[in-house]
Amino acid sequence: MTAVPERDPGLQPERTRLAWRRTTLAYTVAAVLAARQVAGGDLSAAGLVAVALSALVWLGFLWVAHRRVRELGVRPRPRALSAGAALAAVACTVALAGFAVAMVV
């Protein structure tokens, strides 16, 4: 054991950052499909509200992901993901599915 390397040779923070980016992309695709639901033209008022709320939770997810991506870039040895961030990301995902139910039914 000599000097502690400054940077992880396995690029773990980098890979984790990219995983967040991929997930943001996947969320964006789902959100675009949600917005496309308007094009069907047979949405009820509740459905339209659900589309608007989907855009909102999309922004929420972007915010959570952005914060984590920034956090991962600050130090060579970043802290573990906080449970709050994990819960927020999952809450945004579940909310999108919930709004989807309102649009589909």
């Binding site: 499909l33 994990a86 995902t93 999108l96 599915a97």
Partner: peptide
Amino acid sequence: FLAWLRTALALIGGGFA
């Protein structure tokens, strides 16, 4: 965790599709 979340998002996207 993120990989599972993407799986979930793919299923939700499938629901829309």
